[in-house]
């Protein structure tokens, strides 16, 4: 039975499914590397972006200017260039190769990608959060002031929680962009999902098989991510949706009414 299925696929399938099946574990390992890189850089970048966004939303020019420069540079240059600068660029300097950072971190492709991705997503998330902080409803801030909240407390208790929630839909885009951007890792020798696709193409000279399998797996990951965000948006942004009219069951004999 198994043999006849294999034979059927080998004869009739336009792409070499048997070869994909034989190497599918490699693709799963690749997917794991992709997820790992994307998730860790989102966490690192996310944590970095919170203080940076608060600085960008405030009006201290000495703090604001360097953060602005940072986001401008990282949003203004392609991720591929940033990754190359860190991987190939830094390695060019002998004094960097002699620091303690070289052996454990900068000589490793994985860490170079992680640094580039984290800084890149930090820059985008900073600007995204800044917009969200600036657009906080005035009334909420004034109410907190009236209740005697200090400025840091206002930020922590009122502005940030609300800003995070409102940034959620835009942030889901950033997550998907970062996932797609992580293919850059394959250009600096990391065997991520695309890297495995390229390996297969390099080994068997079959472009479709490798890249279609990678594409399908990326698609599945993005589907899961966007589903997850939709769920969280429903959960955390409930208070912003137009309220559905509640039908109140009329008491006997009374006219029905809506609240």
């Amino acid at each position: 039975m198994g043999d006849s299925i294999v034979q059927f696929l080998e004869t009739w399938s336009p792409i070499d499914i048997v070869l994909i099946a034989q190497n599918f574990d490699r693709f799963l390992w690749g997917a794991l590397t992709t997820l790992e890189l994307t998730l860790i850089s989102l966490v690192v970048g996310g944590i970095l972006s919170i203080p940076l966004a608060i600085i960008r939303a405030g009006n201290n020019p000495f703090l604001n200017a360097p953060v602005w420069l940072f986001t401008y540079v990282f949003r203004g240059t392609p991720l591929l260039v940033q990754t190359y600068l860190i991987y190939y660029g830094l390695g060019q300097f002998e004094w960097i190769r002699e620091t303690f950072l070289w052996g454990p971190i900068l000589s490793q492709a994985w860490y170079c990608a992680l640094i580039a991705f984290s800084l890149n997503t930090a820059a985008y998330t900073t600007e995204l959060l800044r917009g969200s902080i600036v657009n906080t409803n005035r009334g909420e801030v004034e109410a907190a002031k009236a209740c005697g909240f200090s400025s840091p407390m206002r930020m922590r208790r009122i502005v940030l929680p609300s800003a995070f929630r409102r940034a959620l839909p835009a942030y889901s885009n950033e997550v998907i962009f970062m996932l797609h951007g992580s293919v850059v890792a394959s250009t600096i020798t990391i065997q991520d999902l695309l890297g495995v696709g390229r390996w297969l193409n390099g080994r068997y000279y079959l472009a479709y098989e490798g890249f279609i399998t990678a594409a399908v797996l990326y698609f599945i990951i993005v589907l899961a991510v966007s589903r997850g965000f939709r769920f969280w948006e429903k959960h955390w942004l409930q208070h912003l949706y137009p309220r559905e009219a509640l039908e109140v069951k009329p008491a006997k004999g009374a006219a029905s009414f809506r609240i």
């Binding site: 020798t189 390229r198 390099g202 000279y205």
Partner: peptide, 25 residues
């Protein structure tokens, strides 16, 4: 280290499967 998609990739995977291959463009 070797260039991805060359005969050398085939050779290394066949003859020295325990080496860690680092593939470049």
């Amino acid at each position: 280290g070797l260039q991805r998609g060359t005969t050398h990739q085939c050779f290394m995977e066949k003859m020295y499967p325990d080496a860690e291959l680092v593939l470049y463009g």
